[in-house]
């Protein structure tokens, strides 16, 4: 990295927050909206969540079923591939672990294709969704999640770039192979670890 941009000093008095992965900046209290699709409007009353694919039996939950599971909260940071990060934020929902616990996962299931009500998809290793690392959430900082930010319910996988946290989540399909989702077919990385700057295919 010998290259330097002539006359560029960066924002004055910047202090690099240790919570910021490389190449990210802190948006403060803002929360930019980035979606490729039109924001859908739906109510949790007629929403369901399904896990299918390599499971003993396909399982479908209503929102009521999900509310009956132990509530779980995430306090921490989120990182968008377009270089903003939002530090010290919080979400409330259920841990993906408590959903997975209710299905019989086939031993060969290693990947998940997550699908939204809009048809948006994103792929993740199953290991990135289990072990207390992922949630279905409906509240942000104590308030109902707004539609533009994926409300009424979205996936939250905060240790990966935020396009993995599919908005308007409705289904997980368990697979024995990695199947690229929407952005992944369009050049974005299959895993998307912000600490390794896995932004695009090949990074």
């Amino acid at each position: 990295m010998a290259f330097a941009s002539r006359g560029f000093g960066g924002r004055p008095h910047r202090q690099r927050d240790e919570r910021l992965p490389p190449g990210q900046y802190d948006v403060g209290s803002d929360w930019p909206v980035l979606t490729a699709e039109v924001t859908p409007r739906f109510s949790l009353d007629n929403w369901t969540f399904t896990i299918d694919g390599l499971v003993g039996m396909t399982h479908t939950w209503s929102f009521q079923d999900i509310r009956a599971l132990p509530e779980s909260r995430y306090d921490g940071d989120i990182h968008c591939v377009t270089t903003w990060s939002k530090l010290g934020t919080s979400f409330t929902g259920v841990s993906v672990d408590s959903l997975i616990a209710q299905v019989q996962v086939a031993p060969e299931a290693e990947f998940v294709l997550a699908t939204s009500t809009t048809g948006y998809t994103t792929n993740l290793p199953l290991a990135d969704l289990t072990g207390g690392k992922a949630w279905l959430v409906w509240e942000h900082e104590g308030k109902p999640l707004t539609a533009e930010h994926g409300g009424p319910i979205r996936l939250l996988v905060p240790h990966l770039y935020f396009w993995k946290s599919a908005k308007w989540i409705t289904k997980f399909t368990l697979l024995d192979h990695d199947e690229p989702g929407f952005w992944e077919r369009n050049g974005y990385h299959d895993r998307g670890d912000p600490w390794k700057e896995q932004r695009y295919q090949g990074d």
């Binding site: 980035l34 979606t35 490729a36 039109v38």
Partner: peptide, 29 residues
Amino acid sequence: AGFAESISQQLLMLGYPQSRIRLERFGPT
């Protein structure tokens, strides 16, 4: 984001299919 949202909602209202709208949102909200 505000512009993209308002335009896409208008297109939907006019009966333009959601699946044929592609959005790129940037800049301030």
